[in-house]
Amino acid sequence: MNTTDLQTPLKRARGLGSAKDGTHHFVVQRITALALVPLALWVIWLALALVRADYARAHTIVHQPCAAVLLTAFVIATFWHAQLGLQVVIEDYVNSRWLEVTAQLAVKFFCAVGALASVLAIVRIALG
């Protein structure tokens, strides 16, 4: 550590590194990953239950409060996790600054709209 640096080690740790957000991205990626382990397994089970289901049956299944809540959790965790992952892929592989900014914004908007549309659809099914 530079002895002329007047920042305390804590300040340095809170200085959040070159990305300016410290370990926040890393931590949220892990939290959403952890949440998605059981949620993804449950969604596979749900998808298998929907294989032979007609509209009325599928609606009844997703209409159940427990299913609606878990599906909402899955959708939010999925789009959040996807945004964090795609962000890193773009950071790593897109060299042109303008293209990178455009791609980052496009991913954020897609994930936000995707999550909102999915949640509103689930709410409509749950209340309908």
Binding site: V62, L71, V75, T78, F79, A82, V89, G114, S118, A121
Partner: peptide
């Protein structure tokens, strides 16, 4: 990971259609 992110389009479509 990228493929699954693309696959969310079908998830959105399915939920919107069910709604």
């Amino acid at each position: 990971g990228v493929a699954l992110a693309a696959g969310t389009v079908l998830l959105i479509a399915l939920l919107l259609a069910l709604a």
